[in-house]
Design a protein around this nucleic acid. Structure first.
Length: 203
DNA sequence: GTGAGGATGCACT
DNA sequence: GTGCATCCTCACG
């Protein structure tokens, strides 16, 4: 059974949505072809007071998507050459999002080899920048509604529930990556990943 | 195996 | 002008 997640899935507490996204599947449609990846690692960025979040410095041209409706893609460029893909959560007007850090490629069996780089023409997806590159997610996807709705039934990108359940005991909570500047928020255990999964970006 | 440093564009001060 | 929600390469041994 496969179903595209709708807006009400994302309209909840960000930490809850982040954990619920583990084990869901990212589907990217490009010219009639589909790429699929199981989400194995995420980070939560929780509201205007979270100093690690871009939204903590107020609503700007870049961050306005986070202040908008849940279930929209927030994509931005980082370090000049990589993109990060986030999904907006919670209510309209409250800036929060979940960063997709790593997925497990469903098309590929050579897990160990593929972790490092391109093997058998299938790009690596164990890291936010690499995932975006592999799934061709760039700033054109910023502000796209990734939910199913009547007006536009098939977005170019969506999240699917295929009935996989991740046990609570298999979810690891850890510190977020690259947010040393975030003072009392830098040590929050708001990164979640599937225990022992080979595709997680860092141990 | 591990760690340091560079690449690189753009939002924000 | 500064500093990134990153990743790769190249030393080291």
């Amino acid at each position: 059974m496969q179903k595209i997640l709708k807006q009400n899935f994302y309209k909840h507490d960000t930490l809850t949505v982040a954990k619920d996204l583990l084990g869901k599947f990212v589907v990217r449609k490009i010219g009639g072809k589909k790429m699929v990846g199981k989400i194995v690692e995420v980070e939560a960025y929780c509201g205007p007071r979270d100093l690690a979040s871009h939204a903590s410095r107020g609503k700007t041209e870049r961050t306005k998507i986070m202040f908008g409706h849940p279930g929209f893609a927030y994509v931005y460029m980082i370090y000049g050459m990589y993109y990060c893909f986030n999904i907006v959560t919670e209510s309209h007007g409250y800036p929060a999002a979940v960063l997709i850090r790593a997925v497990e490629s469903v098309n590929d069996r050579n897990h160990r080899e593929n972790r490092r780089n391109v093997i058998n023409h299938i790009p690596a997806t164990n890291g936010p920048g690499k995932f975006c590159k592999a799934f061709r997610i760039d700033k054109k996807m910023n502000g796209v509604d990734i939910c199913r709705n009547r007006a536009r039934p098939v977005p170019p990108l969506w999240i699917e529930d295929r009935g996989m359940k991740i046990k609570k005991a298999d979810i690891v909570a850890a510190k977020r990556i690259g947010v040393e500047y975030a003072k009392e928020y830098k040590d929050k255990l708001w990164r979640f990943y599937i225990k022992r999964n080979e595709w997680v970006s860092k141990k």
